[in-house]
């Protein structure tokens, strides 16, 4: 009997805490598949943020630290400096990375910290019940923008890949999505490339993954994917924003 598809070893065989149809689960699996395929589970140390994926330490099989809100890149820096030969990655949501943790992510990139960041952008605060995120779109209705996000009051959604790609220390930055089978495959390739960037000591790598929040968007899981395509992708174009991984 040949196995064509199964749960990756480094993804714990448990029911995760995510809502039905939330694509966090897919992203977790992609990270685990890449770690399995590179054979680095034993040398990987992850950092979980504060947000829906705060209990990611229950969903992976490798060593993991849970960081204060927004501080995962700093925690990762501390770990990577102690274990420069280990694979260190953070898994962060948009509130964690682009609101409270903006300074930490910018400076981790500026230092070209040799870590990988998996940045899940679902344009909302999921764990706390659907508040505006720094990546919520203009006009998007949330618990804290009940009349839709207004530019004159809450300004504009942050484009993290574009922002960080201007930072010299950034070695590899790509934005991907998990809204379709084809895009999931591309997302996996990007995550693999980011981990290879770290393996080859090229410096800071980040993959931004557009993701859904069916519960707080108030949509069925497949409708949420549709909403992502129609609304998020125009504001958050997919693609590689910087790639110096071939530079020695």
């Amino acid at each position: 009997m040949e196995v064509l598809f199964e749960r990756p070893h480094s993804l714990s065989n448990v029911v995760n805490s995510y809502c039905p149809g939330c694509t966090h689960g897919i992203i977790h699996r992609l990270v685990a598949e890449v770690i399995d395929e590179m054979g680095i589970e034993g040398e990987t140390i992850g950092i979980a943020p504060v947000g829906c994926s705060v209990t990611a330490y229950n969903f992976f099989e490798f060593d993991i630290q849970q960081a204060a809100h927004g501080r995962a890149p700093a925690v990762a820096t501390g770990i990577k400096r102690v274990h420069p030969d280990k694979f260190v990655f953070t898994y962060q949501g948009d509130g964690d990375l682009a609101a409270i943790g903006t300074a930490e992510i910018v400076h981790a990139a500026a230092r070209s910290e040799n870590i990988t960041v998996i940045f899940v952008n679902n344009a909302i605060y999921g764990m706390t019940g659907g508040q505006m995120a720094p990546t919520s779109l203009v006009g998007q209705v949330t618990q804290t923008t009940p009349y839709g996000r207004k530019v004159e009051n809450q300004g504009y959604p942050l484009r993290v890949c574009e922002l960080l790609s201007t930072v010299e220390g950034a070695a590899y930055i790509e934005r991907v999505s998990v809204d379709s089978v084809q895009n999931i495959k591309k997302a996996k390739a990007a995550i693999r490339k980011a981990f290879e960037c770290q393996k080859n000591k090229k410096g800071f790598s980040l993959v931004e993954v557009l993701s859904t929040c069916p519960t707080n968007w108030g949509k069925e899981p497949d409708e949420a994917l549709e909403w992502l395509r129609e609304n998020m992708m125009p504001h958050y174009p997919l693609g590689v924003y910087c790639d110096y991984t071939d530079k020695d």
Partner: peptide
């Protein structure tokens, strides 16, 4: 046809695909 689309799209690793 073993295309694995279903398993790829599943957020919870519910689907294992084997070939007898």
């Amino acid at each position: 046809i073993g295309c694995k689309f279903c398993a790829t799209m599943c957020p919870d690793c519910v689907i294992k695909i084997v070939k007898d």
